[in-house]
Simulated assay, not measured.
Amino acid sequence: MSLTLRNLIVALGLSIAMCAMPLPAAEPAKAASAGPKKGDVPPALLGKDRKGDLVDLAQYRGKVVVVSFWASWCGPCLKELPQLDLLQKHAGDKLLKVIAVNVEDSNDDYRMMMRQMKGFTITMTRDRDGKIAAGYDIRAYPNLWIIGLDGKIAANHRGYGEDSLERIIDDINRVLREQAALAPSAIAG
């Protein structure tokens, strides 16, 4: 297949109409960013999946991992999640893993969202108390992290808008190309 991920995403009609969505006003102001930066190994634990299994980034080493933090009240997040699911379905699990971390929704809201996303193939986890999000210094939604096959942060997009779609696609493509270039040596090694 000669389709690049960009062509695949464009062909799928990926139009994430995002806008900066700050956390609710009740969130206390923080000093300088304490979250991970590009090149850092991010916090590994991302909560429990729908089956109750702990999701650890270490289990996906050797794949590109896209982690999106979201909440049910974030309209742009709800537009992004189906597109990430399409991306996962079309890219498959060999090179890419998409994990969506729900942050601090009530039990009722979370259960309702899980019913609505029943057929999704992306891994859905839950951060009930916001501690996982705090480890990533999440201050705005949507918040997307691209983690390379080496387990280090390759890119981060915080509170992005529709005008950032091209850059996000470029980042995912870049990291996937790096993965593909290293895959033969990883298989042989």
Results as ranks from 00 to 15, higher is better:
S2P: 12
R6Q: 14
L8Y: 03
L14P: 00
A17L: 02
C19P: 01
A20Q: 14
M21R: 07
P24L: 13
E27Q: 15
A32C: 01
G35E: 05
K37H: 07
G39Y: 05
D40M: 12
V41I: 14
P42I: 14
L46I: 12
K48E: 09
D53V: 09
Q59C: 07
Y60H: 15
K63W: 09
V64T: 13
V66S: 00
V67I: 14
S68D: 13
A71M: 04
W73C: 08
C77M: 10
E80C: 03
P82R: 01
L87A: 05
A91D: 00
V98K: 15
I99P: 02
E104Y: 04
Y110C: 01
Y110I: 03
Y110Q: 04
R111D: 09
R115I: 01
K118L: 10
F120S: 09
F120T: 06
T121I: 05
I122Y: 11
R126D: 04
D127P: 06
I132S: 01
A133V: 00
A140W: 04
N143A: 11
L149N: 09
G151L: 06
I153M: 11
I153V: 15
A154E: 13
N156L: 06
G161D: 12
E166G: 08
A180D: 08
A183N: 11
S185K: 15
G189E: 13
